[in-house]
Design a protein around this nucleic acid. Structure first.
Length: 853
RNA sequence: GCCCGCUUGGCGGAACAGGUAGACGCAACGGACUUAAAAUCCGUCGGUCGCAAGGCCGUGCCGGUUCGAGUCCGGCAGCGGGCACCA
């Protein structure tokens, strides 16, 4: 008997699938389509275990759906723009493009080792002008439709590197690379008008039924809709008014001060003639925006000396402060403070001696005695101390207050969102150039479509500081497309999230030169039926894509609101970490456990200390290289390990024992089939369908029960349970001692067929060994026959007073009375009843009997 | 601080919608085969008492609902994640 040679088998079947074009997808209106997509990789150079898990999960879906008769689209490509390429250019003097394309070539080979059922003919990289030219064209379309605009906005500016930093790149107020103190600067930036869809993006979340609740909730919070009112306060001694947004118009009678953001226009105006205020404003603006700083920052205010009139209370004036806790970007950049019912306002009021006037009375509180101490009251209650609002509950009072504001024409109901427009300008080289030209006489002019793409110049030097495109001697100098005069090209590039916001649509028609994709292809393939990736993209990428799809629809490229009908977020891969005696991280792959349980460094036997199980990361030296695993054990083993044990949405702990467990099963499967080949009738022999009894009947039932249950678990992403079912089925086949060859063939073929989505190579190999001339990857998925799904005898537990005391065997359709009688007659049950008569007997058909004495 | 999720053997995890807790696997232990090792095969495997039959305890902790709770309800603790001067 031969031993399974995974190396030969895996390369062979990968070649066969490729040569036959087994996984090529074409539009076919005769079949239902199914689009499976995993979040495409950034070409860093090596695949990691997270990729292996991600693509294994996707491949199970793709192969299952293909078996079930769907026309499956399962593509792969490269999210190829990004900062690491520029980092490599600075560090090693390689052009970002060369570095990126080299990495793609390597990673493609690594991914291909996994034996995924991918249509490689649709592969593309987003750094290819053939891709980003369409992005530029769409950008111009969106600009023309008002979905793109340019405006001054505050950014994190690194004064050493001369570049904008994303919030994530500011660590403790300093640039992540230069270490320089980050400044807040106002800069003209390009924006996508995502807020135009804020309400729609929020409402549509309800319809994303096949998305995880967690992600839907995170998006809801991110969009952050608040309903309230805009109130215009009259300023004493001035003609203009101070506009404020509040979600609590019901507490207006509790107002005791006003607060402006440091960069509010009024703050700036007043600071001009007030050096002290100017210094205060500067101090606030300098303060970092990092979370830690905000958390510890003390509430500080500066009294401007100005006052507002209370909108409802004659003769009551409210002092106007500039305060460090007010955000200029949210609402109107100004607030009214109601200390009794807002903790932050209370802290401020206590510090600056402002009155605290409660206006919401908690249920059962005494209006005469109720006072606010160190904690603001934010709960429900009745309004008091509030003239015409007195006696109303909070919600009614909000409505009533808004009515009054509208009647007096000093305010109105308003909805605000936390969501901001998406700033996409990056002062970087390795990204898609913004296809715009600034002309001194014509203003902003888009690059004409026939001149697209605006390609990146090749001859660029990388020093790491500033924007190479801006420093390029000639690239930005162009003639204005409108007037022909001297003009300047935009030297910024897009945020790389723009590329990933529409790549799923490009896969539908990846070779299209004239268009990003044809309407026909998009209409046929989209939306993505099943999208799979890490939860770290729950907000950014998944929200941007939802916006971008709507924007593409607005421009007529397709007619679709939601790009991803189903979303699955996989867990991370964790691994044990190790440190040496000095407390330095030790590479987990160079460590082994001695027989006495001590962990040691393999090369010199020196002891190491195992630490926590943590997410695989380079810094903790606990990564495992997937290619080494695939070369050592085979892709099927690696895939099976990814699917066994841990549910796919939970974190998976990498263990050597686990990979050996998968390896052992692959080999056991091989033996299982090989040892039985001789006794099998030729392929195509009809499966026995009647007259079965004993172990034959048992096996027949297990075949169909396993088909039914495994299919269901596979469809529900319960891959660990599907693996368990299949293993149980293997155990069943191994235990079968009968001689029915046709039945055994049915069992073995079913086993192999069920395993194909998980371990496709060995399944394909065994399918051939079983005498088939056609490919398993093209074979239909088996159907469970209802007749074999139920046993005719059941084992039922019997409880006495809720404690399990025994069990009885009864026929499936045994009437209740007989079940009851059998239960009461059971020895152990009678003993537990201690001769007492049953007071009550509960019979749950097919499940349990409970005798109450 | 606010919001969400999780907590079951030595370990990963099963238990569909309240109905036999611990499927399947890993590890461990005992045995067979073998000169030996690996591989393979057979068996044991929540704790505890018992020769056994079987008993008692057991799903983070406290309480409740129910004939019956890992599952539902209330409270608490621990762990993980998201958001965070958002007015």
């Amino acid at each position: 008997m031969s031993r399974y040679n995974f190396r030969a088998s895996e390369t062979r079947w990968q070649r066969v699938w490729e040569e036959r074009g087994t996984f090529r997808a074409e539009i076919d209106h005769a079949r239902p389509k199914y689009y499976v997509l995993e979040m495409f990789p950034y070409p860093s150079g090596r695949i990691h275990m997270g990729h292996v898990r991600n693509y294994t999960l996707g491949d199970v879906v793709a192969r299952l759906k293909r078996g079930q008769g769907f026309n499956v689209l399962h593509p792969m490509g490269w999210d190829a723009f990004g900062l690491p390429a520029e980092g490599a250019a600075v560090k090693r003097g390689i052009h970002p493009g060369i570095w990126t394309w080299g990495n793609i070539a390597e990673m493609r080979e690594q991914i291909k080792m996994m034996g995924l059922s991918i249509d490689w003919s649709r592969e593309f990289a987003t750094c290819d002008p053939a891709y980003y030219r369409h992005e530029q064209a769409m950008f111009v379309d969106m600009w023309e439709r008002g979905l793109v605009y340019r405006k001054e906005s505050w950014v994190n500016w690194d004064p050493v590197d001369n570049t904008v930093l994303a919030n994530e790149q500011v660590i403790d107020g300093r640039g992540w690379r230069s270490g320089a103190l980050v400044e807040r600067r106002k800069l003209a930036q390009w924006f996508f008008k995502i807020t135009a869809f804020a309400d729609e993006l929020l409402e549509a979340i309800d319809g994303l039924e096949r998305w995880p609740d967690k992600v839907r909730l995170m998006q809801r919070n991110w969009i952050g809709k608040s309903q309230g009112a805009r109130v215009r306060f009259a300023i004493n001694g001035r003609d203009d008014r101070l506009e404020v947004f509040t979600t609590r118009p019901d507490t207006l009678f509790g107002a005791s001060f006003m607060a402006l953001a440091p960069d509010h226009p009024l703050s700036a105006e007043l600071a001009k003639n007030n050096p002290e205020l100017a210094a205060f404003v500067a101090e606030c603006l300098r303060g970092g925006t990092s979370e830690a700083q905000l958390e510890t920052a003390e509430k500080k205010g500066f009294d401007t000396g100005l006052t507002c009139r209370h909108p409802f209370m004659e003769g009551v004036d409210l002092p106007i402060y500039v305060a460090n806790f007010v955000l200029s970007e949210y609402g109107t950049g100004a607030v009214f403070g109601c200390p009794a019912h807002d903790q932050r306002d209370l802290d401020f009021a206590r510090k600056y001696g402002r009155p605290v006037r409660p206006v919401v009375l908690p249920p059962d509180a005494d209006p005469a005695a109720f006072a606010v101490g160190e904690e603001a009251y934010v709960g429900e209650g009745r309004i008091f101390n509030s003239a015409f609002l007195d006696g109303l509950d909070v919600e009614s009072a909000k409505r009533r207050a808004i009515e009054e504001l509208e009647r007096l024409q000093i305010g109105s109901g308003e909805t605000t969102f936390r969501l901001r427009d998406w700033g996409i300008s990056r002062q970087r080289y390795w990204g898609c150039p913004v296809p715009m030209i600034e002309c001194p006489s014509c203003g902003t002019v888009p690059v004409p479509r026939d001149q697209l793409p605006v390609e990146l110049p090749e001859d660029v030097d990388f020093t790491g500081a500033g924007n190479p495109l801006d420093r390029h001697p000639t690239w930005k100098h162009v003639a204005c497309p409108r007037c022909g005069g001297a003009a300047e090209r935009e030297t910024e590039t897009f945020d790389t999230f723009v590329e990933s916001s529409w790549y799923f649509a490009r896969f539908c028609d990846a070779r299209n030169e004239a268009l990003p994709f044809s309407r026909e292809a998009a209409d046929y393939w989209l939306p993505v039926d099943q999208y799979i990736g890490g939860v770290e993209h729950a907000v950014l990428h998944l929200l941007y894509s939802r916006f971008y799809t709507r924007a593409m629809s607005a421009c007529g490229y397709l007619d679709l609101a939601e790009p991803f009908a189903g979303l699955f977020t996989q867990g991370m891969i964790n691994h044990l970490t190790f440190k040496d005696a000095k407390g330095e991280w030790v590479e987990a792959s160079k460590v082994a456990k001695r027989d006495d349980g001590q962990w040691v460094l393999v090369e010199d036997g020196s002891p190491v200390i195992p630490g926590r199980v943590e997410k695989m990361s380079k810094s903790k030296l606990n990564t495992v290289d997937p290619t080494e695993i695939i070369q050592g054990y085979g892709a099927d083993t690696a895939r099976l390990f990814m699917l066994s044990d841990s549910p796919p949405d939970r974190d998976l702990e990498w263990t050597d024992a686990g990979i050996r467990g998968a390896w052992n099963y692959v080999n056991r499967l091989w033996r299982l089939v090989e040892e039985r080949l001789e006794g099998l009738p030729p392929p195509g022999t009809p499966a026995p369908a009647e007259g079965l009894e004993g172990s034959d009947l048992e096996l027949k039932r297990q075949i169909h029960r396993t088909i039914a249950a495994a299919t269901e678990e596979l469809e529900r992403f319960h891959y660990n349970k599907a693996v368990a079912l299949v293993r149980e089925f293997s155990n069943g086949i191994e235990a079968y001692k009968g001689a029915n060859g046709a039945l055994l063939r049915e069992a073995v073929e079913t086993l192999v067929r069920l395993l194909e989505p998980m371990t496709p190579h060995i399944a394909e190999e065994l399918w051939e060994r079983l005498g088939h001339a056609t490919l398993l990857a093209e074979a239909p998925w088996p159907t469970a026959q209802a007749a074999w799904l139920q046993a005719d005898e059941l084992v039922i537990g019997v409880q006495v007073n809720g404690k399990r005391r025994g069990e009885i065997r009864v026929a499936r359709d045994c009437p209740k009375e007989q079940v009851e009688a059998a239960a009461l007659a059971e020895d152990n049950v009678r003993r537990a009843m201690e001769g007492k008569p049953p007071r009550r007997v509960i019979v749950v058909p097919g499940k349990i009997v409970n005798v109450v004495v």
